[in-house]
Amino acid sequence: MASELSVMFRRRRTWAMLAALAAIPVLIAVAVRVTGAGQSGHGPAFLDRITQNGLFVVLTALVLCTPLFLPLTVGVVAGDTVAGEAGLGTLRYLLVAPAGRARLLLVKYVGAAVFCLAATASVLLAGTVAGLALFPAGPVPLLSGELVDGWTAEGRILLVGAFVCVSLLGLAAVGLFISTLTDVPVGAMAATIALAIAAQLLDALPQLDWLHPWLFSHWWLGFADLLRQPVEWTSFGNNAALQLGYVLVFGALAYGRFATKDVLS
């Protein structure tokens, strides 16, 4: 397990992705600082609030990252889990060790989950630092109009981070499963990312509204419910249950596939 994580975090690719994610809130903060506040009601949510309070940098960044950049990086990592080893020809050596395939799969998934956490954390951290460095801090207005002090707001933002991190776990499980299907890591990555985009497209089609609650991307922007007063926990619970379902189903599928797979590379 430790070696898996150290391998992942020693890769230049991992750090490049985390740095790219961290750059997004920094870019937002610098752009707003240079050009001044946008008109209210235009651009991504929360963008117009940034000049009043730096903590909104984090929220704006999450609104931007959640549908695209975070799934992109998670797709790369999750798609690489098994297929990457197969592509490098190292998978069979891993299986020679008496650890068992289930354990290998579990370690790979935990590695992907840790990356989800690291990715979210890098956005949060960079956003908080950039926001507080360039803009005033102080009481933060919630969506309901109530003001909360900076520490409470930071607590809410950490909750939002937890929400976003949990949101990505389902996608990571899907990526793990796809990764067991192929020996070509790029294919698995592309398929995972394509699925993430397809799920969001389907979520936007009103004709498929019966399907929406079952899409792993359905609650992705539900983190705003944590910014209401009082906190609306329903979407957090729904999201967690849904992601857990995805982890179980696609974890089982991945195991079923991987346990019976002839590993030739």
Binding site: A45, L143, S144, G145, L221, A224, D225, R228
Partner: peptide
Amino acid sequence: VQVLDTLAERD
């Protein structure tokens, strides 16, 4: 009354 919109709210 709070109308919960996506990423916004009307009160």
